[in-house]
Design a protein around this nucleic acid. Structure first.
Lengths: 337, 337
DNA sequence: TTGCTTTCCGCCCACGATTGCAATACCATT
DNA sequence: AATGGTATTGCAATCGTGGGCGGAAAGCAA
């Protein structure tokens, strides 16, 4: 049904290889002939068959994207930004994105991931989600390009792109100190086993030591993925003898709970307590008062990851020259501080 | 580098075609031989090369997903749910998802869409986004399977899957009437040129006529995509002589504005005014009071769309037997009503 | 005329898998 | 021993593109 290169050659009155040369530019083709060929291509709506092309060039022009399908509905809007960034970079470079969401039932996830490589349906992989770990050996051993995105890197082993969570928390503290706060509390996004959580904790700790001169364990509460995480913690923090005048929440949802509880307890936000969230989602925009939030450069992360992967595929970056890209977060100021 | 079918044949001590038969089940292969073959496959981590396979079978086992990359950040979490639904259905059926976001600069969008078809890099297409219109002719003429998802259908021409926005608004009214309300206002999600907006408007109108006996133009305000859409409208609606006791907002974001403004004006929610949102996003969960919202079955829409498309690809549904799937919305009850 | 370059063609192989065909090997039943 | 059925094989063609090679044709300059 669809036109083949032969049809184009016939239409343009040239040989098949001349068409191929004209398109791929690996030999001299006279301008006039080129023009005839491209007119024929246009007329027949010809595009080289991907399968055939892939078979001989050993390139699919696909980038595989494997995402661990976790349940936390909130990260969704963030995730989509990453995907859009990826889509932009790949689209601009004539790549397509081969997407698969997989539940974090580790075996299926790993299988699917390896299948993309084994079936050779993509030239490289981008991996998102913490549960993916086991199957890296085969990829590395066979020098198949892949990039970890927005998840804990494995230093010296895998290329990765991530947001600088540590710096983000650090900036949050610095910003609050600039506003005159010295008793600044932290509610972590979740338990410290999760890397992003630990990073934010560390950034907070570092900044407190640097700007306030002292890190007080009492001012740290551990958040969770529970619906109302932040609610009880707020009360606990505000009832300390020397209560904090500012609270950094590890996620926007938590921050909205913090604001809510603080107000219930009679504290005005931001006058009595300032609040900062994390991730700069709709939640922080819509809360009243709107909540200052640390913005993660999700779209840019996707963009950089795709660019990096494409360089790896093209061999512009050597396999053993492990790249670790960490992108800075920015403070997005709103009413809550 | 990667193993080929020849390697497997050699390893198992059989002929190439026996391996192929064993895998694709198109001839008799003895159990014992089958076992040897699958052991060899396992040992070599063999998977048939997609390009080679696609070339001869004329199937890629990919489904193309073309999404119009609009800017409205809020629809994101919803969009991702659709994608997850798609991913689930395709993954379960051994398909992959070929994703491309494109800005609604119509020409690029259309080009990319047609390229997927012309390059034959997918067996079918799923299209999301209102700006995609022009290039259907080529697809239809060549009987290439595609499904419109979550956007205005073209009756009798294209297969489509959508949420029943009309029924959703209808249910909202019905629910409020059940709670004793009779003066029920509507703020549309945006202008009525947008189909979903019009559908919700019609559903509201229908239900008002049916359950209240009278449709009052005064009770309808036109919303927009502005940040604070809903704010001014609320004031207008509440200052009517015979003010509404309930407001249906066309989107959750708008609903949150409605609640906010109503409270500022001294009306208690839900006691003085009940509020219902649309889309059941995080916003409605996090608002205080939490907002009752009409939930669109996004994930299921993705699932159904993928299933439909796969049936079309397999020829289980004829080309001219146009399917229009409309999935019902449900009321998700919260504090605001 | 000769020599040289540019442009083009035809031919052929390769890529990896599927599949039809004809042939053979094996086994069990009669 | 003959028959029939099942299991397996080799061979070859096919899919659409890419690309190497040698050669032919055409144009141009000396």
């Amino acid at each position: 049904m669809a036109a083949t290169i032969r049809d184009v050659a016939r239409e343009a009155g040239v040989a098949v290889c001349t068409v191929s040369f004209a398109m791929n530019g690996s030999a001299h083709v006279a301008e006039a002939t080129k023009k005839r060929i491209f007119e024929a291509i246009e007329k027949l709506n010809y595009r080289p068959n991907q399968s055939a092309r892939g078979l001989v060039t050993k390139k699919t022009n696909n980038i595989g994207l494997v995402v661990e399908d976790t349940v936390d509905g909130l990260e969704n809007s963030i995730l989509l930004d990453v995907i859009k960034g990826l889509g932009q970079a790949t689209g601009d470079n004539n790549y397509d994105l081969l997407l698969s969401f997989q539940k974090p039932s580790t075996s299926k996830l790993a299988d699917h991931l390896l299948d993309v490589y084994r079936k050779q349906s993509a030239d490289g992989l981008i991996l998102m989600g913490a549960a993916i770990n086991q199957p890296f050996d085969e990829l590395i051993k066979n020098r198949f390009p892949f990039v970890l995105l927005g998840r804990p890197a494995i230093p010296g082993l895998c290329h990765s792109v991530n947001a600088d969570n540590e710096q983000g928390a650090y900036e949050a503290v610095k910003y609050l100190v600039g506003k005159g706060h010295r008793r600044i509390a932290l509610i972590t996004p979740c338990t410290l086993e999760v890397d992003a959580s630990l990073d934010r904790y560390n950034g907070y700790r570092l900044a407190m030591e640097e700007f306030v001169g002292r890190f007080d364990e009492q001012l740290v509460a551990i958040g969770s993925f529970e619906q109302d995480s932040g609610y009880a913690e707020t009360e606990k923090l505000l009832s300390l003898k020397d209560r904090p005048t500012a609270i950094i929440a590890g996620r926007d949802v938590i921050a909205s709970r913090v604001v809510e509880r603080a107000q219930e307890l009679g504290y005005a936000v931001p006058d009595d307590v300032a609040v900062i969230g994390f991730d700069n989602t709709v939640v922080s925009q819509l809360a009243r008062p709107s909540i200052t939030s640390i913005e993660l450069p999700m779209r840019q992360m996707g963009l950089e990851a795709a660019k990096l992967l494409m360089k790896l595929i093209d061999g512009e970056i050597g396999f053993d020259d492990i790249q670790t890209i960490v992108l800075p977060c920015t403070v997005c100021e709103r009413e809550s501080t």
